[in-house]
């Protein structure tokens, strides 16, 4: 500790980061995840089978990849509702290239490139022209998917090369799928980016108070643009995985993804108003969503009922703490 020059000494921290983590939203999510895991294990004998669990991971990995980028975007006070449409467009571009005989590496590059271009388009409109991201991405959502419909109509692209199937159907070792590895890598990269770099710090500052961030010499527009670019890139990666897994492209591919991605992000404790949230929270939220869906699936609950559970979960995770606070104030 240095000695005070003319002021009094102020301690760096009063509570240790570990103590803080114990009382956090993420800790609560972890408890919920474990509880659901145990409940599922008790409810169904098939649940603990590693192959079943590995299979079940597909229902969150693609969405969660995007959720990491979306989390950063929402922390910065923006939103991208066009992610599902970006997947559709990227998948369509890959499909067109595939029918023209493109090889797997070219397909992958086109998928990533389309994602980046779409992200850049959103970023240009929001950061460059200062338009509100929610309506811009509602517009680009129609535009991107609309282009897919123009290309495909009610048709589909099928017949992707065998090597392309690796991304969505392959295993790295034992039960660990390629998608699961991409998910874990994305979690790591985005976790470091948001929590351990000055870029991440600036994202928090912008989300808390964009004006004050600009008045602190931060290039707010540039950071917003990069965030849209990242979201586009992750949507491109998800498009590769999803197309590879389904083995076909229809214009309705990944319909409604944007809502599920936002749900994961919000469930993960990211404030929809910006300024707070963490990548570990999003990871846990993705796991919780995956476990709930899988568990209900094992109990033969139809998909649409699961969506009710998702919607109720989304509202109640935000409503319950507020109700609790209101009740305590009384």
């Amino acid at each position: 500790m240095t000695t005070a020059i003319n002021g009094r000494h102020i301690p760096d921290r009063l509570t240790s980061p570990a103590a803080r983590a114990l009382k956090s939203w993420e800790a609560l999510l972890l408890v919920v995840a474990i509880a659901i895991f145990i409940l599922n294990a008790l409810a169904s004998p098939y649940f603990l089978d590693p192959w079943n669990l590995s299979d079940a991971s597909f229902n969150f990995t693609e969405k969660a990849m995007i959720a990491f980028a979306m989390a950063m975007l929402i922390v910065a006070g923006e939103i991208d509702l066009s992610v599902g449409a970006i997947i559709a467009l990227a998948s369509t571009v890959m499909g067109l290239a595939m029918t023209a005989g493109a090889s797997t590496p070219v397909l992958v590059l086109l998928g990533l490139g389309t994602g980046l271009l779409c992200g850049a388009f959103n970023g240009l409109l929001v950061a460059g022209f200062g338009l509100p991201s929610i309506v811009v991405t509602i517009g680009t959502m129609s535009l991107f998917r609309g282009v897919s419909y123009i290309v495909l109509g009610d048709g589909a692209f099928t017949g992707y090369p065998e090597s392309f199937a690796w991304f969505g159907q392959g295993y790295v070792f034992w039960v660990v799928t390629v998608e699961l590895v991409i998910f874990a890598l994305a979690a790591l990269v985005f976790g470091i980016l948001l929590h351990r770099t000055s870029f991440g710090r600036m994202v928090y500052a912008i989300g808390n108070n964009a004006t004050a961030a600009r008045f602190s010499g931060i290039r707010v527009e540039r950071i917003r643009f990069v965030l849209f670019l990242l979201t586009g890139l992750m949507s491109g990666i998800a498009a590769i995985c999803l197309t590879s897994r389904l083995g076909s492209t229809r214009p309705s591919i990944a319909a409604g993804f944007e809502l599920e991605v936002v749900t994961i992000v919000v469930l993960g404790g990211v404030s929809i108003l910006g300024g707070s949230g963490s990548v570990p929270g999003v990871v846990l939220a993705a796991l919780v969503m995956g476990l709930v869906t899988f568990g209900l699936g094992l109990l033969n609950v139809p998909g649409i009922v699961m969506s009710i559970v998702t919607g109720a979960l989304l509202i109640s995770v935000i409503a319950l703490p507020r109700l609790w606070a209101m009740a305590r104030r009384r």
Partner: peptide, 22 residues
């Protein structure tokens, strides 16, 4: 509860539609 409208209606949207199935 002061929940942002986009979150509320995103949630009720799936709940209302799911209720039709129920």
């Amino acid at each position: 509860l002061g929940i942002p409208s986009i979150v509320v209606t995103l949630g009720t949207m799936t709940i209302y539609r799911g209720s039709i199935f129920l």
